[in-house]
Simulated scan of single mutants.
Amino acid sequence: MGVKMLSESVKDCIRALIYLAINQEKSYVSVKEIAEKLNLPFHYLAKNVQKLVKSGILESYRGPKGGIVFKQPIESIKIIDIIKSLDDDRLFKSCILGFEECSDENPCAIHNRWVVERNHLYNLFNTSLKDIVEDIKQGRISNVKL
Rank of each mutant, 00 (worst) to 15 (best):
M1W: 12
V3I: 13
K4D: 13
K4G: 05
K4W: 04
M5K: 08
L6Y: 11
L6E: 09
S7D: 09
S7C: 05
E8M: 13
E8L: 14
S9K: 14
V10H: 05
K11Y: 06
K11H: 06
I14Q: 07
I14E: 08
R15H: 10
A16D: 02
L17Q: 01
I18S: 05
Y19H: 15
A21D: 07
E25T: 14
K26S: 12
K26Q: 15
V29K: 00
S30C: 07
V31P: 04
K32C: 01
K32R: 13
K32T: 10
E33T: 13
E33R: 05
I34W: 00
I34Q: 01
I34P: 02
A35N: 06
E36Y: 06
E36V: 10
E36F: 09
K37S: 11
N39K: 14
H43K: 15
Y44P: 00
L45P: 05
A46R: 14
A46V: 04
K47F: 09
K47E: 11
V49R: 00
K51P: 06
K51G: 07
V53P: 06
V53H: 09
V53A: 09
K54L: 13
S55N: 15
S55T: 11
S55I: 04
I57N: 00
L58T: 02
L58F: 04
L58G: 02
L58I: 06
E59Q: 07
E59D: 05
S60V: 03
Y61G: 00
G63R: 02
P64V: 03
P64H: 03
P64T: 05
K65Q: 02
F70Y: 06
Q72S: 14
I74S: 08
I74R: 10
E75Q: 15
E75F: 15
I77W: 08
I77Y: 07
I80G: 02
I82S: 02
I83E: 04
K84N: 12
K84Q: 11
L86Y: 01
L86M: 04
L86T: 01
L86F: 04
D89Q: 06
R90F: 07
R90W: 05
L91Y: 01
L91C: 00
L91R: 04
F92Q: 03
S94D: 15
S94H: 03
C95Y: 02
L97F: 08
E100M: 04
E101Q: 11
E101S: 12
C102I: 07
C102V: 08
D104T: 12
D104M: 14
E105Y: 10
N106K: 15
P107T: 14
P107H: 14
P107N: 14
C108L: 14
I110E: 12
R113A: 14
V116Y: 12
V116R: 14
V116M: 10
R118T: 06
N119F: 01
N119H: 08
H120S: 08
N123D: 11
L124C: 03
L124N: 06
N126Y: 08
N126K: 09
T127K: 12
S128R: 04
L129C: 10
L129G: 03
K130F: 09
K130D: 10
D131N: 13
I132M: 09
V133R: 10
V133Q: 08
I136K: 09
I136E: 11
I136F: 13
Q138D: 15
G139S: 09
G139Y: 11
G139D: 10
I141V: 12
I141D: 03
I141W: 10
V144A: 13
K145Q: 13
L146S: 07
